[in-house]
Amino acid sequence: MSARKKCKLVQAENLIPLATTATLNPIDWNLCALCQEPSSKPLNCPAQSKRTDSGAGYVTLGDNLKNILQLGKRPLSIDIARLDEGDGIGNTLARNHAQWHTSCRLCHGTVTYI
């Protein structure tokens, strides 16, 4: 049996095809990493979690975004590749203490492993 996981996108109504052009501005880590829009909505930051696995949120989101990128889609209007500084999306998110709106986290699409 293969050790490689297969993934299937199960919620894609909010995704945009990769061919859509995206602005090349650097990520502003003070804003939501997923939408880059200023808002009065609170931002969630896994680095501030009191859980023993406080960085796990970065790994999970990074893995999901990578899988969505491989499926040729991306969430909202940002280019997922901008969230990877060369050592993986999860590592980049963690290093920059990325934060996001709960609504944006839910809009990026749900990936289930089969």
Rank of each mutant, 00 (worst) to 15 (best):
M1S: 15
M1W: 14
S2I: 06
S2T: 12
S2F: 11
A3T: 10
A3C: 11
A3N: 13
R4I: 14
R4D: 15
R4M: 15
K5A: 15
K6I: 10
C7G: 13
C7S: 15
L9G: 00
V10D: 05
Q11S: 14
Q11G: 11
A12R: 12
A12K: 13
E13S: 15
E13F: 14
N14G: 04
L15R: 02
I16H: 08
I16W: 06
P17W: 03
P17C: 06
P17E: 02
L18F: 09
A19C: 13
A19P: 03
T20K: 15
T20L: 14
T21D: 10
T23S: 15
D28A: 09
D28E: 09
W29G: 03
W29H: 07
N30V: 10
L31G: 10
L31H: 10
C32W: 02
C32H: 02
C35K: 03
C35S: 08
Q36T: 13
E37K: 04
P38K: 11
P38I: 06
S39Q: 11
S40H: 14
S40M: 13
K41D: 04
K41H: 12
K41R: 14
L43D: 05
L43P: 05
C45P: 05
P46S: 04
P46M: 04
A47C: 12
Q48M: 07
S49R: 09
K50M: 06
R51S: 09
R51E: 08
T52I: 11
D53E: 12
D53T: 10
G57R: 07
G57I: 00
G57T: 06
Y58N: 08
V59A: 05
T60L: 13
T60M: 11
L61A: 10
L61W: 04
D63P: 00
K66I: 07
K66T: 13
N67L: 10
N67F: 08
I68V: 14
L69S: 03
Q70Y: 08
Q70C: 09
Q70S: 13
Q70T: 07
L71E: 03
K73A: 01
R74V: 00
R74K: 08
L76R: 12
L76M: 15
S77P: 00
S77F: 07
I78C: 01
D79H: 00
D79P: 01
D79N: 06
I80Y: 00
I80F: 03
A81N: 14
R82H: 06
L83D: 02
L83P: 03
L83R: 01
G86W: 11
G88S: 09
G88M: 03
G88H: 07
G88D: 08
G90R: 06
G90C: 10
G90T: 09
N91V: 00
T92L: 08
L93W: 04
L93V: 09
A94P: 07
A94S: 14
H97T: 14
H97K: 15
H97D: 11
A98Q: 04
W100V: 02
W100L: 04
H101Y: 03
H101K: 07
T102S: 13
S103W: 01
S103K: 01
S103P: 01
S103R: 01
C104D: 11
C104Y: 11
C104N: 12
R105D: 05
R105E: 01
L106Q: 04
L106M: 07
C107T: 02
C107R: 12
C107S: 13
H108N: 08
H108D: 02
G109W: 08
G109Q: 12
V111G: 05
V111Q: 12
T112V: 15
T112R: 12
Y113K: 03
Y113D: 03
I114R: 11
